[in-house]
Every structure is written in C-alpha cells, then in structure tokens.
Amino acid sequence: MVAWGFALPFVLVFTVFMLVPLLSSFGMSFTDFAARDIRSPFSVNFVGLDQYTTLFTDPRFLKALSVTGIFVVVGIPITMALALLLAIALNNVIGRFSPLFRVIFYAPVVTSIVAVSVVWRYILQDDGLINSALSIVGIDGPNWLNDTTWALPSLIAMAVWRNTGTLMVIFIAGLQSIPTDVQEAAAMDGAGSWRRLRSITLPMLRPTMLLGAVLISVGYLQFFEEAFVMTQGGPLDSTLSAAYYTYEKFGFGQYGLASAASYVLFAIIAVISVVQFRLLRSQD
C-alpha cells in the first residue's frame, strides 16, 4: 500500500502521457482519424490495414525509410570509428590537456540540434565557409544543402560532429575497465602496440562498442531537427527522414496515417531497444 503511494505520481503521469498515447497511437493507425475528428470523434472509422497499405505504396514513405536507413548505416560506422580513435588517443595522453580535449569533443553533445543546424546551414551555404575554403585550393564546392547528392552526407557530417562525444565518453569508460595487467603481460611477451590494440583492446571493448552502436542508432533513427531546419526534407526528398514524414502527415491533419508511420519507425526502434536491453543486462 505504502509502496504504491510512492509509485502513484509516476504511475499516473506514466499511464496518461506514455502508456495511453502509445496504445492509442497503435489504435489510431487502424482508423482514418483526422484533424477534424478531435471535435467529433464519432465520425472515425476503422479502416483495418489501409493506412499501412497506403504507407508502403507511397514512394515518399519508402524514400523516407531508405533515407533514414542510409543516415544510420553510414553515420554509425563513421561516428564509432572517430569516437574510438579519440577515445584511444585520450586514454593514452594523460596530462594537463586531456580534460580540455575531452570537454571540446563532448561540447557539441550538449547543444540544441536546432541551434547547431542553423550554424551548419550557414557554414554549408553555397558561398559559405566550407566553399570559400575549398575555393582557395581551387575546388568549386557543391551547393551542399541544395544538391540531391550532397545534402544527406552534409546532415550525416553534422550528426557525426554532434554525437561522437557521446560514444567517445562511453568508449573511454570501456577502455579504462580493461585490466592493465593483461596489456602489460602481452607487452612482456613482445606484442607490439598495434598487435595489442587488435588482439586485446578491441576484442575486450566489443560489448561497449555494441552498446554504443545501439544507443546511437536509436538516436539516428529519429533524426528530424536537422532535416527540419537545414533542408525541410529537400531537395527532392533527398533528406526526407521517417520522423519528418510522420511530422508532415501530422501537419496535414492525417493523424491515422501519421500514427501508422510513427509505429513503423517505433517498431524498428523497439527491435533495436530489445537488443540494447539484453546488452545492458549482460553487462550488469
């Protein structure tokens, strides 16, 4: 009784603002619920799987899924490789500058994506900082954000910049949990530094890396602000993310369709979260 008293505020908020929306989002995805139905909920019809059929026959939704997929599949390895490089480097130079570097590489993580998107849009303008720098060495850079080839890579570059710090910190924690004596024993046996990195450090860091990959992929799958501020999903839908598509359908008042789209995205994230849950448990 007392225990439920302690749990009550959480249970209330959790039920009303998490559980109910999560279930009704699922329910709504099988109806033709639209903006006008907020006032007259009795005109809502059950339409079965129609919304999902609409989704998967809409080339724009398929495009959104593939854009999101590319964002994740290209963004994750780059972010991880960079974070690993920085983590190993920072783990090796313990000195006056080490905390400073850590702060610098982590700083983008705490910034508002909207704010940094504005900054990166300014940097990536056709006559912006990047292209001015490139023109000095004689390269005529593309109009990054207005180019169907370069817009998505530009957004990926910004995401890498913003998220590397998160993984770096996780990797440093992982590196420091590797016992020193193993490294030293291998060194005694004559293993060079490259060999030790490949045969000891990386294998022992594997669980941490898996966890990091899952964490970042859950974030990357939802990418929205970047597209909203920098490209509005364009040009020609080349940066249309699944979350942006959902928001767009919501904006058009097609709540049933938006719910269905959000559930497809959620299902993908849920699968990955289950993997993460397993990882967390095996780590405890």
Binding site: M18, S25, I38, A243, F250
Partner: peptide, 22 residues
C-alpha cells in the same frame, strides 16, 4: 513497464498526445 518504455521516442506518441492535450 519502466524498462520496456526506456527508449520510447516522442515520435511514437506525439500524435495521440496532441489529440489528448487538445
């Protein structure tokens, strides 16, 4: 329930949440 919803993103709930709040 807490563990299961640890990673539920806003994008999965914002449509009905908006309807409810309205």
């Amino acid at each position: 329930a807490v563990m299961a919803t640890l990673m539920v993103p806003t994008v999965a709930t914002f449509v009905p949440l908006f309807v409810m709040v309205s």
